[in-house]
Write a protein that binds this DNA or RNA. Structure first.
Length: 927
RNA sequence: GCCCGAAUGGUGGAAUGGUAGACACGAGGGACUUAAAAUCCCUUAGCUAUUGCAGCUGUGCGGGUUCGAGUCCCGCUUCGGGCACCA
């Protein structure tokens, strides 16, 4: 029997299926461990070889934890709602559900071939009504909640209503969209519509007018994390800013907790940093500037309260509500034209256009500290969505203000001693203040940091503003003008949104005749027949965005068939949160923020026991493609080998990597690959080979560099694929897929098999293991255990190779060694381990290796009788010297100095000092 | 512009402050074979040498700390990632 993965692997997978080996139940008698992969969107292209990287790592860890006695929850599912299926539907008319189901089936079969230890009985998909019922349910709870800034938690909206009823907005401490004030009497006088509108200011899920990223090509709005540099992440279409009335989630209310929570979780610093940047906390002051000759007060936000004496003008965002309030009649036409022109530009156009532009509003504001009168401008370099949409401009110390001041000829007053502002602004936050004295406050001579503090204190005391923390994190736009997403459990009665009762959830996604928007621009759901309540009230036409379904899926896995709750209390109390989460960095500012928000919200409700969803998170690197090229000699059908191409005038052409092996082209396969190459001629190199060129590119069909894991499994087996993906390099690093080298790993597995069988002969015996056998084994157990804990899987594979080489040389066939060896290999290569466990090691059918115990290593076997010291002179290693392991430092030193090789290095020198590092090195310092 | 991270042979990559280059690929040489595949063995950082098996230089660049630095500190360069008219 030779190693034959094509025979072993399907059989072992069937065995695990039959035995339901990977089915887990909560079990209070055993410690739990929850290992999760970021579930995939099942795309039409199927899995390529890059996708399983993280899944293999998490599978190794899960299996290891299980061998260590943990009750391991390791589920898999599908993020099934998404744009590609819908766009495919628009093109072909095929129902997205059908496309999605087909794709899922393909993914499932590809995943099963790799031998993962998923508990498939917990599989979920976000488009399943039994699942999205709970997405709708969570949305309802958010609608019914507000954020209490005193308690720092979400509370029922009924409590807020009671407060408004009794006190109006007086003493109300709640996260709000806008600062509004009304009395209890005013609240009581409101009608239903007015009250509904008013409450939107506080609800955690609310309808609001907000600037959204509108993508005309996709016909929908996009969240901030779905847009980069003014283009949609999917498809790269231009995105414009547009004011729309949309569902939003008040994620901003949680900004502080999302930031603080980062301190309690075990994520990489870079990912935490990315989230910190995204949340963007900045401490500063809000200040009031009265507008001359009117009762309008401009509120501005600044982190540089110290520079208030250098304010020479003010700027409003074009979209700011202040613009209309302050613009004078003479300037109205020009300002309106400017605002209009800005509105027509896409975000991308605004970003590209670095030219300074703006208009004077005709208004003047009064600096509350200096009493000076400054002009108020409108310009698109001020953003409506951040702070108050208005700024005080300090051209001397802000480069953007500086550019504006120079363009409009406005004065620049330097505030820091020695700062030269004749050519550019001085933006650094250091130095001594000058020109900063007013009637009541004098900052001159202070260091910037002290001046900021002093100015803030003064502003608070005098009531001309307040200290404020601002976050860049915006509320999440929660409406999408699409079909293939969760419907909102909302209907409208006289223009007021109402929730469907829980008993009517899930609200099923209806069948529709066309997946396109309607002629008058309404979302596709407007095509649905009978899309209204039995009473005839219209249901919401938008659907939820992609991140809705992925925000709480990890909770559902804990209790996937519960019809009473998203997750039952008992199941949640046992599984708690994800102990290890593995996935890509691309979700850093999307899914990983929304999930944390969603979880914190459910935590506030008392629905879940943990405040953070993912305790430890590892980002696996991306696997890029490695493309191959052939070189066509211009205007011919002749192709020249890469090592000779420089003597010809050639064009590089992508060639399918699947007909190239170790960069050598299979020329016959090339001729058959495409008709145009049928008559191809080749210029071969001296070895008679055609060598292809190569480059690292994104893995994609158009580059012909996609490698399908199925092909690797078919050729080498799943165990080889698993080991090779781990061997490729550190898990967290991005690297190109390169099939060159996979033979080495495959060879290792054959050698491993060779310890147990030679042909049809069973080699395993009951002989006593030798000291060498035991040392090799225990070294491996120790190393692999430590490596797995540290997610250093590439080095464990190397350790296996070393161990197998040693044991082969030692001709070790002792069961006492080969049995634990199989167990240690099991997390990496489960099929071969399970097979040998039963056939060579004779375990019966009910005893699976996946439930064996991880072998403990013993230092006793690792101890060497002698150790080798490297002897150095002045730090430079010169020779090595064996010593008994128990020799003391003095003996080692004496032996080193007396060693015959030492004489040469000591010639004409004196020994100044000798350092002995036990078991390692002797450094002799000579002068 | 700000904030992270990285830089080691032909290639992917190893090295708790302690003999840099583990392990693998590729390459070169050899064994077995009619031949090929498969398998096994040897060599493989560079430069001097050389059968005394040694010497010198080497982890992007320049400094520093240390008996000893790929590893720690300071200053650069280049590449990758994140944020970005965020006041």
């Amino acid at each position: 029997m030779n190693y034959n993965p094509q025979d072993i692997e399907p059989r072992r997978q069937q065995y695990w299926r039959d035995k339901q080996t990977y089915k887990v139940e909560a079990d209070a008698t055993r410690p739990k461990f929850y290992v999760l992969d970021m579930f995939p969107y099942p795309s039409g292209a199927g899995l390529h070889v890059g996708h399983p990287l993280g899944y293999i790592a998490s599978d190794i860890y899960s299996r290891y934890k299980r061998l260590r006695g943990f009750n391991v929850l390791h589920p898999m599912g599908y993020d099934a709602y998404g744009l590609p299926a819908e766009q495919y539907a628009i093109r072909t008319g095929q129902h997205p559900e059908k496309t999605t189901t087909d794709n899922i089936a393909r993914y499932r079969s590809q995943l099963e071939k790799i031998g993962f230890s998923y508990d498939w009985s917990r599989e979920l998909r976000t488009c399943d009504p039994e699942y999205y019922k709970w997405t709708q349910w969570a949305f309802k709870r958010m609608f019914e909640s507000y954020y209490d800034t005193d308690a720092d938690a979400a509370r029922p909206i009924s409590e807020l209503v009671a407060h408004l009823e009794a006190h109006g907005t007086d003493e109300l401490h709640a996260a709000a969209g806008k600062d509004v004030e009304f009395t209890a009497a005013q609240w009581q006088a409101m009608d239903e519509k007015q009250r509904s509108d008013a409450l939107m200011n506080w609800r955690l899920a609310y309808l609001g007018n907000s600037m959204v990223n509108w993508c005309p090509a996709l016909g929908t709005v996009l969240a901030n994390d779905e847009v980069s540099e003014g283009l949609s992440l999917r498809g790269g279409h231009p995105v414009e800013q547009k004011m729309m009335y949309q569902w939003c989630l008040r994620v901003s209310a949680y900004a502080g907790r999302l930031l603080k929570g980062l301190e309690t979780i075990d994520w990489t610093d870079s990912l935490k940093e990315t989230q910190r940047n995204w949340i963007g906390r900045s401490e500063g002051a809000e200040m009031h500037f009265a507008v001359e000759g009117s009762d309008v007060v401009l509120d501005i936000f600044t982190t540089r309260a110290d520079t208030v004496f250098g304010v020479t003008f003010m700027v409003l965002a074009p979209e700011s509500a202040y613009v209309d309030m302050v613009t004078t009649p003479e300037r109205r036409e020009a300002v309106q034209a400017y605002v209009e022109a800005t509105r027509r530009k896409t975000e991308r156009e605004r970003l590209i256009d670095k030219k300074v532009s703006g208009e004077f509003t005709g208004a003047y504001a009064i600096n509350p500290l200096s009493g000076k009168r400054v002009p108020v401008y409108v310009s698109d370099y001020v953003l409506a969505g951040y702070g108050t949409g208005a700024i005080m401009a300090v051209p001397a110390h802000d480069s953007r203000d500086y550019a504006f001041a120079r363009h409009f000829g406005l004065p620049v007053i330097p505030l820091i001693e020695g700062a030269d502002v004749s050519e550019e602004s001085f933006d650094a936050k250091s130095g001594k203040m000058i020109n900063s004295a007013g009637p009541e406050l004098d900052l001159n001579g202070m260091e910037v940091a002290d001046a900021i503090a002093a100015a803030k204190r003064f502003i608070e005391e005098k009531g001309i503003g307040r200290v404020k923390v601002n976050y860049r994190l915006r509320d999440a736009i929660f409406s999408r003008q699409r079909y293939w997403g969760e419907p909102f459990p909302v209907y409208y009665k006289d223009g007021v949104p109402h929730l469907l009762p829980d008993s009517e959830l899930p609200l099923l996604l209806p069948e529709i005749s066309s997946y396109k928007p309607t002629a008058d621009g309404e979302p596709p759901l407007a095509h649905a027949e009978g899309w209204h309540t039995p009473e005839g009230y219209r249901l919401e036409l938008n659907t939820m965005p992609g991140f809705a379904g992925s925000s709480a899926y990890y909770l559902r896995y804990m209790d996937p068939h519960n019809s009473e709750a998203l997750v039952g209390r008992e199941a949640n109390a046992y599984w708690r949160s994800v102990d290890l989460y593995i996935g890509g960095t691309e979700h850093a500012t999307g899914h990983l923020i929304y999930s944390r928000f969603w979880n914190k919200f459910l935590y506030d409700l008392g629905e879940v026991v943990e405040d953070e969803p993912f305790r430890k998170l590892i980002n696996q690197g991306m696997i890029q493609g490695r493309s191959n090229f052939v070189y066509r000699i211009k205007d011919t059908n002749t192709y020249v080998s890469a090592d000779l191409k420089d003597s010809y005038d050639t064009t590089a052409i992508h060639v399918d990597v699947n007909i190239v092996s170790n960069d050598v082209l299979d020329t016959e396969a090339f001729r058959k690959w495409m008709p145009e190459y049928a008559d191809a001629e080749f210029v071969l190199n001296a070895d008679g080979k055609y060598i292809c060129g190569w480059a690292v590119e994104k893995m994609s069909k158009s580059m012909f560099n996609v490698v399908n894991p199925d092909d690797i499994v078919e050729r080498y087996g799943a165990d080889t694929l698993r080991l090779y993906e781990m061997f490729l390099g550190p898990l967290e690093q991005s690297k190109p897929w390169d099939t060159n080298g996979i033979d080495g790993v495959n060879r290792f597995l054959k050698k491993f098999w060779g310890l147990y069988y030679k042909g049809d002969t069973l080699l395993v015996d009951d002989s006593e293991p030798t000291a060498d056998n035991l040392r090799s084994l225990h070294k491996l157990i120790k190393k692999v255990g430590a490596d797995i804990e540290a997610f250093s899987f590439n080095t464990s594979v190397a350790a296996f190779m070393i161990c197998i080489n040693e044991l082969s040389q030692q001709k070790c066939h002792s069961r006492a060694v080969l049995e634990p060896l199989a167990v240690v290999l099991c997390p990496f290569a489960p099929h071969i381990a399970e097979e040998l466990w039963h056939t060579a090691l004779g375990h019966d059918d009910n005893d699976s290796i996946v439930d064996a115990a991880w072998p403990e290593y013993s230092e006793e076997y690792l101890r060497e009788s002698s150790v080798t010291y490297a002897v150095s002179f002045n730090g430079k290693a010169r020779f090595s010297m064996p010593m008994p392991a128990d020799a003391d430092a003095a003996a080692v030193e004496a032996a080193a100095l007396a060693h015959e090789s030492s004489a040469r290095w000591l010639e004409g020198k004196t020994v100044r000092k000798v350092i002995v590092v036990p078991g390692k090195i002797v450094n002799i310092v000579v002068g």
